[in-house]
């Protein structure tokens, strides 16, 4: 996926550059750009199913396969037939990157908070609880290199994406 994004970015970058040959801006470098949360922290909701777009963590719980959609939530698939997993539901959790399941309860990061979701009925997961302000927000990307400095006025950082940056001021 990262590679696809990178290729896309490079393509878009190339198109952009070729279409405006006169632009003297040579200071564009590849780096990382914050993804800001546009929704409320507390909006945890269950949806029927969502297309898989940017998968992160994978997890097996009994006959379920759970796949994180980076910074967006968790897909739950019925995997009792491994030849044909079927999506049962999608739990929308803004900023979610990781999770674990124990005795039918799912524990997931939701930006700074932890949310607990009951998945004992995986077709209709139910929100249970929230523990606030337990996880720090990472103000820099996981990877080294140039990045666009975080602007807190734009919201909470929920992830990082590759981008062409003009004169980046932050480096890791």
């Amino acid at each position: 996926m990262k590679k696809t994004i990178m290729i896309l970015t490079v393509l878009i970058g190339a198109v952009a550059l070729s279409s405006c040959k006169k632009k003297e801006d040579n200071s564009k470098v590849e780096g990382w750009k914050p993804i800001y949360s546009t929704t409320q922290n507390s909006e945890v909701e269950t949806k029927a199913s969502q297309p898989l777009q940017n998968p992160g963590r994978i997890y097996v719980y009994e006959n379920l396969l759970l796949v994180n959609e980076k910074a967006k939530g968790i897909h739950i698939y019925d995997n009792s037939n491994t030849n044909s997993p079927v999506e049962l539901s999608f739990i929308s959790i803004p900023g979610n990157l990781d999770f674990s399941v124990n005795d039918g309860k799912l524990y997931a990061d939701n930006i700074n908070d932890m949310v607990i979701v009951d998945i004992s009925n995986p077709t209709a997961p139910t929100y249970v609880n929230r523990i606030e302000d337990i996880f720090p927000t990472q103000q820099f990307p996981d990877e080294f290199g140039a990045f666009e400095c975080v602007d807190p006025s734009k919201g909470q950082v929920v992830g990082w994406e590759k981008a062409m940056l003009v004169n980046p001021k932050c480096f890791r």
């Binding site: 719980y61 049962l88 990781d98 124990n102 039918g104 995986p122």
Partner: peptide
């Protein structure tokens, strides 16, 4: 015929090697 996970004593599941969350004995 949907997956049921009603048994409350199922314990934790299995994550991939990149996991940053893990559950061990409660």
């Amino acid at each position: 015929p949907v997956a049921t996970t009603k048994n409350a004593q199922a314990g934790p599941g299995i994550g991939g090697s990149l996991a940053q969350f893990t559950i061990v004995e409660g």
